[in-house]
Amino acid sequence: MSNPHTVELPSYKEQSPEVARHFAEIRERPVKLEIKNLCKTFQNANGSVNVLNDVSLKVHRREFVSVIGPSGCGKSTLIRILAGLEDATSGSFLLDGDQPHGPGADRGMVFQSYTLFPWLTVKKNVMFGLEVAERSQQAAEAEAREWIDLVGLTKFADAYPRQLSGGMKQRVAIARALANQPSILFMDEPFGALDAQTRAQMQSHLLQIWRNVDITVLFVTHDLEEAIYLSDRILVLKAHPGEVLEFVEVPVSRPRSPQQFLQPEFLATKQRLEELIHPRRDIEEEALPITRMTNVGDEAE
């Protein structure tokens, strides 16, 4: 069936020479995170649920990797295992070649629910990790100020979290995680609770920060456009059990900008992700058994 409004998209695997060079460059960098055959099984009343099954991947230094998948695919579980907040049932992962035990300052984490300490001011929140590491008060404060400046919250340094908007809170959370200078930053749907406008703003903020800071990011989201806009590669998981469907290399060139949302490469990638996450049969619209309750001739569509 031909539709006059659809356009022919290129394959998402086609990469411009510039993008191909970028990926070649990434592959040459040292491996930051290596996940080997990671499995996670939860025990519940109905028996055991296999949440993650044999997940393996490699993330290189300063790479931006997104994890997407339908709900229940274990993307949050994956990131929580990596952060040390949960234990894997089997398999292992290496960070800079070492196996970390439990949560630690080497792996920063930004949660969807902000998780700022409400009793500390913005500055004190950012200083938290530095104070735990027993840095001197002056050094910690100076460093915290730099990070607060970096996320553009200089004016709010002495405000309490409750006085901030959602977007500002998340910026503080990012600054707090980065102030610790972790070798990798995990972000678990960090912009999920924000409204569309703030979310777009935060995405470009995050890109700017990532460009200027030596940091590897593993970013969990359910928003396909967000994943394409931000990442170098996208890990697509399937649900029940959570397994790797594909590790997509994003063919959109860097530096990224919101204008690229309409580029053929962008749309092609998005189409591919949609196919992977929502297979055709799910999209078939089922007619709802609704009785017509409006007047004849009062058409909405």
Partner: peptide, 24 residues
């Protein structure tokens, strides 16, 4: 989640108790 956040920032046992649980 506050405890988890503090742990990812490097807080352990006593500092977790002193810096997060008690003020919280």
């Amino acid at each position: 989640s506050l405890l988890e956040a503090a742990q990812t920032l490097g807080a352990k046992n006593l500092s977790l108790l002193r810096r997060v649980i008690i003020p919280g």
